[in-house]
């Protein structure tokens, strides 16, 4: 337990000094995806529900944020709030339908709904269609107290949002609610026979995950000042799965590690064009075949074996 605490303390110190040696916009993007991956992992790793359409929450929240801040000319806080609320509401509707089927069907249904949202976004007037929402202004937070025009200032805001989201997920997982979720994941029939209404737990987990994915998406729109179709596309849904998988499903820090690995990889391999897809696909194949526990899961195993010796 102590080692974990020291680890967290080191990570937080690292996060605080990171902008001095790394490009803040890159860090912020990685943090947004890290939160997104954690939200996804809450669902798959702890409730056993594989959503292959999480981009709809991420991307739609970005659009909501952009619309509130740009078209309605309101405060960014309100944009974040409405982004989260909108994503959670979308999660409630799609989740209520998707949990009517189990296993692989659940994945296909969420994927189909995300595709529906994607087609909706191409046509809807407020998303800007193929162009997306461009030039979302970076207005100061807290009524002018925190000017986020400066990337370094915004970085600490994004870090705070990420830590808030991460703490929320940590709290959920370690609450009695989280324990019931794990019980349902491991054996739904048994959880039901013990009197837990599995569907209500699953739906709540889905809505929570959607809302947090929305927080990540809205924050990304705040950082990058645009919201585009890419963020609602099926490829983004696939990416978040990959991040969680690379880091380690069902480990709480895994998705963060995975998100940083994938975002860094995309950054450095952007010049290869279509080859990024080939590499991402190959990583999927290799991980599924050989490293199903992901980076963090494998490391934890190795540590345990070392301790045992």
């Amino acid at each position: 337990m102590n080692a974990t605490r020291i680890g967290y303390a080191l990570l937080i110190v690292l996060a605080l000094v990171a902008p001095t040696f790394a490009y803040p916009v890159f860090l912020m993007k990685a943090l947004c995806f890290a939160l997104f991956a954690c939200a996804f992992n809450l669902l798959l790793g702890y409730a056993g529900l594989m959503s292959f359409g999480h981009a709809m929450f991420f991307g739609m929240a970005g659009y909501f944020y952009g619309h509130v801040v740009k078209a309605w000319d309101m405060a960014p806080e309100l944009g974040l709030l409405l982004g989260v609320a909108g994503a959670a509401l979308l999660g409630l509707v799609t989740g209520a339908l998707a949990i009517r089927r189990q296993g692989i069907y659940f994945a296909m249904i969420t994927l189909a709904f995300a595709q529906m949202v994607y087609f909706f976004c191409i046509q809807a007037p407020f998303t800007g269609g193929e162009d997306g929402l461009q030039g979302i202004p970076r207005k100061a937070l807290l009524g002018g107290l925190i000017p986020i025009k400066d990337d370094k200032v915004l970085y600490y805001v994004v870090l705070a949002i990420f830590l808030f989201g991460y703490a929320a997920i940590y709290r959920v997982i370690h609450s009695p609610f989280g324990q019931v979720l794990k019980a349902i994941r491991d054996n739904e029939q048994r959880a039901k026979s013990l009197g837990y209404e599995a569907d209500r737990y699953k739906l709540l987990a889905f809505v929570l995950s959607a809302g947090l994915a929305g927080l990540a998406g809205a924050t990304k729109a705040m950082v990058q000042q645009f919201a585009t179709l890419t963020d609602v596309a099926a490829s983004t849904s696939g990416e978040v799965v990959l991040m969680a998988l690379v880091g380690g499903l069902g480990t709480i820090v895994g998705p963060v590690v995975g998100a940083f690995i994938i975002v860094t990889m995309q950054n450095y391999l952007a010049f290869t064009g279509e080859f990024v897809l080939v590499i991402q696909g190959s990583i999927f194949v290799v991980i599924v075949l050989a490293f199903r526990k992901g980076v963090v899961g494998e490391l934890a195993d190795w540590w345990k074996r070392r301790q045992a010796r």
Partner: peptide, 28 residues
């Protein structure tokens, strides 16, 4: 054939990855 004993999800992920590789190569 290496993943039949695993949960359905892994088959889904594996074939998704294969699709990315194939489509990426053709696109390239």
């Amino acid at each position: 054939k290496r993943i039949y004993h695993l949960d359905h999800l892994y088959g889904f992920l594996l074939t998704f990855g294969l699709a990315l590789v194939i489509e990426g190569l053709f696109q390239w």
